[in-house]
Design a protein around this nucleic acid. Sequence first.
DNA 1: AGAACAATGTAATATCATAACATTACTCAA
DNA 2: TTGAGTAATGTTATGATATTACATTGTTCT
Lengths: 166, 166
Amino acid sequence: MNSKKGIQRFPTPRHNHATCVNTAMHQAEDYCNRTGVRLTQLRRRVLELVWSSHRPVGAYDLLEQLEPKGRKAAPPTVYRSLDFLLEHKLIHRIDSLNAFIGCNQPGHEHDAQFFICKACGEAAELIDPKVERALVKDANQLGFNIEKQTVEIAGLCNRCHQGRKK
Amino acid sequence: MNSKKGIQRFPTPRHNHATCVNTAMHQAEDYCNRTGVRLTQLRRRVLELVWSSHRPVGAYDLLEQLEPKGRKAAPPTVYRSLDFLLEHKLIHRIDSLNAFIGCNQPGHEHDAQFFICKACGEAAELIDPKVERALVKDANQLGFNIEKQTVEIAGLCNRCHQGRKK
DNA sequence: AGAACAATGTAATATCATAACATTACTCAA
DNA sequence: TTGAGTAATGTTATGATATTACATTGTTCT
């Protein structure tokens, strides 16, 4: 599922998701060990929850899952962990959904493109240098200095599109 | 400032903004007359407020400006007008800012790219077929059916970038 | 004039996010 | 090992954005 170039196909129901989670958690641990930042229990737990699917997930959804029984955590609890994970590029924020999704190239500075299915909610992360190049060229012509790209494509994945045709 | 291809340069302080507003309002009127939808007082007022600058503006900012004296309007008032203007492609929503900006190709179905200066807040709307083509190609490879593109580039415009170098 | 529908007003509430300050946990030098 | 300094988390309150539901007003068309 993971590769240097990001997910190349849409996540399928058949894929072994445990592998995705494992890879992500190990990469996060490696990154934190290498750079000397702390992947605390809470941060690890939030990262696991984000990685529980390939669907962008909202902060308050995560919050509910954090304390399934009894007293519940307050918003800053989850937002601080999300901020940490964002800062270290372990997750991405999907602005068009106010939601968060695991990153495929953790700890590595990059701007990605997201293809997000409106029906099943799953998302694929791509890094297409052509998109990047075209945007950089446009920016140059405008005299604009890019800091961050937000490229989020909404639509229907193949499965859901087929399903609707019936 | 306006053209068939969208703003090609960043809005400058020197440009005659009254022309931008005039053009936008006339295009909106034409569109509504042609298609038989109603550009009511309220909707016109909201559109004018959105066009009062080239900066994306928040719904609550608009709301405040709607009733400068005395009783103030409630959120649905402005959101309904914004929904109408969005539906008819007279404005765009900038997801990364939760804000709204006038559209340069009103009433015309298109996906644009936005370059938004973090310092001065001004934004330029471009339509670069290369970006579109690259994304469509990626989508095809994923078996993905695009419905809507969100391409929002944050950074510094030339003016603000120069200013910071000093 | 009045029926049908579109637009707007109003009150309440949902959803997403941060500020400010208190408490706990960790690190590291002495 | 201890305690001072810092990092992380807990807690309460509030800010910012957006929607639901229902009442009222305005427009259109016979």
